[in-house]
Simulated scan of single mutants.
Amino acid sequence: MAQDKDSPAAPWLGMSRRSVFLGGALLATSGLAALREPVRAVKPFSEKEFDALIPRVVGPWTAENSSDLILPPPDQLSQKLYEQLVTRVYLAESKPPVMFLAAYSSIQQNNVQVHRPEVCYPAAGFVITENEPFTLKIAPNIEIPSRFLVAKQSRRSEMMIYWTRVDNKYPLKWSDQRLAMAEANLKGYYPDGVLARVSMIGLDQTEAAETISDFARELEKSATPAGRKILFG
């Protein structure tokens, strides 16, 4: 059919081949970017749901909420960084008190990622005197790559073992943490992540490592399947 000479021309008429090519390339690129945009892999927990994942009775220890634990600096405790934060002190008649912290976010990306004790303790006036890799054995067939730290302030000496889980990885360094995030992104999703920290006040590092390891093993036994997945993967 002949086109009415008074009707408007098709929008692509009069465009150069170069313009048409560039326009098509931009459309293709935007389409690929949309297809490759990672998606959320884990739904967020409510405060009540997350609190229930962490058992209040762990072997011989029973929990009390505590405001005395060393926390990340206030600007790092925003909802943007941590969706959920649980802090407790666990007491037992025959065991030293144990302090526990779990900081969780259902999505880890760039500036939304777990922050380590190497940041929050110095910000609270502590000096890190020991910082070594530690293999946390929580079951015969389960070993968690973690770190053993000693933080000192005046007369207080706090010894801790902490681990970070990002997706199914246990990064010991910031660079490993970012690599775990990138690997998940390439697979098409944003990973979740948790920092779990168990600590106690004392002077004997060997006793602290043994007590904290005992607590972690009892925690794994006492947690619900969903809680074990969050804390230990």
Rank of each mutant, 00 (worst) to 15 (best):
D4C: 04
K5F: 11
S7I: 02
L13R: 13
M15F: 05
S16F: 05
R17E: 14
S19L: 08
G23L: 06
G23T: 12
A33G: 05
A34R: 03
P38F: 04
R40F: 02
A41C: 02
K43A: 15
P44L: 07
E47H: 13
F50C: 10
F50Y: 13
F50T: 11
L53C: 10
I54M: 14
V57Y: 05
V58Q: 06
G59M: 07
P60W: 07
P60G: 04
T62A: 14
P73L: 09
P74E: 11
P74H: 06
D75Q: 13
S78V: 13
S78H: 02
E83P: 00
Q84S: 06
Q84P: 00
V86N: 10
R88D: 02
S94Q: 13
S94P: 00
V98I: 15
V98G: 04
M99I: 00
F100G: 03
A103P: 01
Y104D: 03
Y104N: 09
S105D: 15
S105Q: 11
S105T: 15
S106D: 09
Q108T: 06
Q109W: 13
Q109E: 10
N110H: 11
P117K: 09
E118Q: 14
Y121T: 13
P122A: 12
G125Y: 07
V127T: 12
T129I: 13
T129M: 12
N131L: 09
E132V: 13
F134P: 02
K137M: 04
A139H: 09
I142S: 14
P145S: 12
L149R: 05
K152I: 06
K152R: 15
Q153V: 01
Q153G: 01
S154H: 05
R155N: 14
R156E: 11
E158S: 08
M160S: 14
M160D: 03
Y162D: 07
W163C: 10
W163S: 11
T164I: 13
V166K: 01
V166Q: 00
N168Q: 14
Y170W: 11
K173D: 02
W174Q: 10
W174P: 00
L179T: 07
A180S: 15
M181P: 00
E183I: 00
K187Q: 15
Y189Q: 07
D192N: 10
G193W: 01
V194S: 05
S199E: 01
S199C: 05
M200E: 11
I201W: 02
D204I: 06
D204V: 04
Q205S: 12
E207N: 03
A209M: 13
A209R: 14
E210G: 00
T211S: 11
T211W: 02
T211C: 08
F215T: 09
A216Y: 07
R217A: 15
R217M: 12
R217Q: 15
L219F: 07
E220M: 11
K221L: 09
T224W: 04
T224A: 13
P225N: 10
P225W: 12
I230P: 00
F232A: 14
F232H: 09
